[in-house]
Write a protein that binds this DNA or RNA. Structure first.
Length: 876
DNA sequence: TGTGGCGGCGCG
DNA sequence: AAAGCGCGCCGCCACA
């Protein structure tokens, strides 16, 4: 075939690029269509070249699946290298597609693999969302093909290179190639196909029915819908294609349902239970047995967690988007809201100071009614979106002024759209939940993950209670702290500017870099760490700590950062999170986020409230126990190291924990050959402690040296060589740990995943990466996961065991509430007279729910404010 | 003017 | 070149 050296079909022709034509035999069974050449491909003139990282990864992906690249045809959607590796423009794709068309006709492959979003979009001939379609084969819909062939959209390996989770999906996608080729995995013939149901029956007349199978308890999916002001309905589905909607006001029907769910011992399926469970309680439904399908997807890791994507991938359902659904109502609400605005008089918004290329400008915003009139004038235009137009007005331009008076412009909701549409939308959610469940269950069962699912479901009610209870915050306390920290930071900023001699911003990395490394040249003669992406000199705390003695400004910058952080992230923000009705801060807890099974909190992230220094601990004192109550915090002691001892069965480590010795002292004494009473803090104990903490994370010599330096240990004594030697000595001492770690890594290399003691799995994409650095990084993750996940599992099981206990106490009339879980710590709020009982019971359950080879002691502490914890002693 | 990436840093 | 795992959130900066 003649391959032209030049092409003038699109704008890329003007750039001086080489054309990277496809390559491979003309009778290839598989055709790979990637996106566009990169720099290396441009130089070499072939797609996905082995000298480029992506090409190397691509070759590896094929090789590990015994797919021959030489016998495959590999090409790009766009043959020329777009400048700066930008996405190819639609014009270029369209122009260049004539070449691809000819390639497909000529090679006539048995299947096409669409590598990446652009190729998928072109080959599926529709706008695609990769999250939904990746790894699913479809029949092509290309008019010029005499017979349509399967096309498998896969994530681009390049996307996997800088996102390990994405690489997992890339690998899973490539696993599908052979099954598609052999016919084992049949392509979907239509984009929408609903394999289970031909007819949908969605009813909202107050009737409902639960399908029972003989001898088995029913499986019932339930979903709820919320409208402004409260829960609107719930929907129930126990048979694919059939769902019943009960409005919130149908109290007796809901009570009947609750009764039947209980008496039949039904398994209730919820998608995102932390959201739905409290709503169900509000509606009078208290599921005794439930599973969260979102949590199931989370445990699989390579599935999306959203119901709509899952329903499409697993059940072929095309779900409507909520915002599209309620769009007409949103439009109507917007018009009413705008009309209300016109009924008021509004002051003219004050002039705004804006910056234009460094020069200040005064901008006078339009009066608000003029803007509103403009939106109303355009309301009938095609694609008019008054809701968006309103929100395009900035807060300063007058939107804030209006919202302070009228409240925010309301979105539409299901109660405001035609009833049949709302019913269908609501019912399809529980229908979808029911339909994805068998697949998820099967996958979890195959992988042995049902136990981990039970652990998560056990802890979930406590997490819900924590979110609902919240924690009392002292507004005045935070106000005082904000002022204090802001003043300190402002003063330091002034000092720093004074020293620098220019109005630098110590919060700007660029400015700090310029001051320290250019103006003052403090970096000369020493190797300064570089930033990850930009390769700039780093100004991280570890780096500038080394420069402390060289110039007084360094200390000021360190302190400035500390105070500014306390001010902006904590003191200033916390009052904004206080719920007006409860006076408490209700954090959000996610159980479906982390790679290791830990929980996480956000908005606000109460797991990261400062504690490590005296000054920063003052933030914790802004959290106060309710009158007549005390905080009780129950901490596992060194839970991760104990997990390590249990996992590795290292004899010495087992012995230390069994005999109740101090692990840091013991380590120091053994490694240095110094009797415990003679140990020196800086010479012995601190290094031993740092290694003990670092080992579970896979620490290496440079990292150890950094942490020791931060501790103020003498660096001339602790050279990198000495650190490496010390780590080696540690591993000789605890040789069982080394053996165990090597075993875990070998397992990960063989199987592509690691497992903790509860069967929880973490898939690791990087064990066979082309890049050595990625392999090492993955090995650290592999070695760490069983420990971190094990610790998370222990506390989750304790939480599950505690749920009936504190609920019983509550029923008996005691005030006892769980407030937070912080990885190895459970924080409670308990009425004063019940403190001892609570501490005894909580400690006992936490220590004994999961017996390990070593004890897992818990140290309760108490305090009226969170920062004032003192050890709890049982006094009878 | 809002958004996303990044560096940096709070916690376990 | 990188050298400690897991999170969420801040300000800065570049971008459209």
């Amino acid at each position: 075939m003649y391959l032209a050296k030049t092409c003038h079909l699109c704008a890329l022709a003007k750039s001086r690029t080489r054309i990277a034509w496809g390559e491979g035999p003309e009778d290839s069974p598989i055709m790979f269509v990637a996106e566009a050449p990169g720099t290396v491909e441009d130089r070499e003139g072939t797609p996905l070249h082995r000298l480029a990282k992506t090409g190397m990864e691509f070759n590896m992906l094929l090789r590990r699946r015994s797919i021959s690249r030489e016998r495959s045809y590999v090409t790009n959607l766009v043959k020329c290298h777009p400048p700066r590796d930008e996405d190819p423009s639609p014009e270029c794709i369209l122009a260049c597609s004539t070449y691809l068309e000819r390639e497909i006709l000529r090679v006539n492959p048995r299947m096409i693999v669409a590598v990446g979003r652009h190729a998928a979009r072109y080959l599926l001939n529709r706008d695609t969302d990769m999250e939904m379609v990746h790894g699913i084969p479809f029949m092509t819909n290309l008019p010029y093909l005499p017979t349509q062939i399967p096309v498998l959209p896969v994530y681009h390996p390049a996307a996997g290179l800088h996102d390990p989770n994405r690489m997992l999906q890339v690998q899973q996608d490539f696993d599908c190639i052979k099954p598609v080729l052999t016919g084992e995995l049949a392509p979907r013939t239509a984009y929408y196909s609903d394999p289970f149901v031909t007819q949908e029956q969605y009813l909202d007349d107050g009737t409902w029915e639960i399908q029972t199978q003989k001898g088995e308890s029913p499986i019932v999916a339930i979903d709820t819908e919320w409208v402004q002001g409260g829960p609107w309905c719930l929907t129930v589905s126990s048979k694919p294609g059939t769902a019943y909607l009960l409005y919130a006001y149908m109290k007796s029907e809901i009570a009947d349902l609750d009764e039947v769910l209980k008496s039949t011992n039904s398994l209730v399926l919820l998608h995102n239970a932390p959201y739905d469970l409290p709503v169900l309680h509000k509606l009078g439904l208290y599921p005794a047995r439930f599973l969260d399908t979102m949590n199931m997807a989370y445990l699989l890791q390579s599935e999306p967690q959203g119901l709509k994507a899952l329903a499409f991938r697993i059940a072929g359902m095309r779900m409507e988007n909520y915002l599209d659904m309620v769009a007409p109502a949103t439009h109507r609400n917007a018009m009413l809201y705008l009309a209300r605005i016109l009924h008021h008089d509004w002051p003219t918004p004050p002039p705004l100071l804006t910056w234009d290329h460094g020069t200040p400008k005064i901008k006078q915003p339009w009066p608000i009614h003029k803007k509103v009139a403009g939106i109303l004038r355009d309301q009938h235009a095609k694609s008019a979106n008054p809701w968006k137009r309103w929100h395009d007005i900035t807060l300063q331009e007058g939107r804030k002024m209006v919202e302070d008076t009228l409240g925010p412009m309301p979105l539409g909701d299901l109660s405001q759209i035609p009833r049949d549409k709302a019913v269908r939308y609501a019912c399809r959610d529980s229908d979808a939940t029911l339909r994805i469940y068998p697949y998820l269950e099967h996958r979890l069962r195959t992988l042995g993950l049902l136990g981990a699912l039970d652990d998560d479901m056990g802890a979930l009610p406590m997490a819900c209670d924590m979110m609902e209870t919240g924690i009392t915050a002292d507004r005045a306390h935070f106000a005082v702290l904000e002022k204090r920290f802001a003043d300190k930071a402002d003063n330091l900023q002034a000092d720093i500017q004074q020293i620098a001699g220019w109005s630098m911003n110590p919060g700007s990395h660029d400015d700090v870099r310029k001051l320290l490394f250019t103006d003052l040249d403090l970096g000369k003669g020493r190797k300064i760490k570089r930033t990850k992406k930009g390769g700039e000199l780093s100004t991280t705390d570890k780096v500038i700590s080394q420069l402390l003695t060289l110039h007084p400004v360094v200390r000021k910058i360190k302190d400035y950062r500390g105070y500014r952080k306390l001010e902006t992230t904590y003191a200033r923000q916390m009052p904004n999170w206080i719920h007006p009705a409860t006076g408490r801060i209700h954090t959000n807890i996610r159980l479906t986020r982390t790679a290791t099974g830990r929980l996480s909190t956000f908005d606000p992230n109460l797991m990261a409230i400062p504690v490590r220094s005296e000054e920063s601990r003052e933030i914790r004192n802004g959290f106060v126990s309710a009158p007549g109550c005390t905080f009780l915090s129950a901490d596992y002691s060194q839970i991760e190291l104990r997990c390590l001892a249990h996992e590795s069965q290292d004899p010495l480590m087992l012995e230390v924990f069994r005999t109740g010795g101090d692990i840091h002292d013991k380590t120091a004494s053994e490694v240095f050959g110094v009797p415990i009473p003679n140990l020196d803090k800086y010479l012995h104990r601190l290094p031993a402690k740092r290694v003990n903490f670092g080992i579970p994370y896979g620490i290496q010599a440079p990292g150890l040296q950094d942490t020791l330096a931060a501790d103020g240990v003498d660096i001339t004594l602790w050279t990198q060589d000495r650190c490496a030697e010390f780590i080696e000595e540690w591993f000789r001492l605890y040789s069982g740990v080394r053996r165990w770690r090597n075993g875990v890594i070998a397992f990960a290399r063989r199987n592509g995943y690691v497992q903790d003691m509860f069967g929880r799995i973490r898939f690791l994409a990087g064990m066979h990466a082309a890049d050595k650095w990625i392999i090492l990084e993955t090995e650290r993750q592999a070695g760490n996961m069983p420990i971190q996940a094990g610790a998370a599992g222990i506390i989750k099981r304790a939480m599950g065991a505690l749920v009936p206990v504190y609920r019983d106490f509550t029923r008996e009339g005691w005030y006892i509430r769980p407030l937070l879980q912080i990885h190895d710590d459970l924080l409670w709020e308990v009425e004063d007279g019940f403190l001892d009982t609570a501490a005894i019971v909580i400690r006992s359950i936490m220590e004994n729910t999961t017996p390990l080879s070593v004890p897992t002691p818990v140290d309760p502490e108490i305090g009226k404010r969170w920062g004032e914890k003192t050890a709890w002693e049982y006094t009878q």
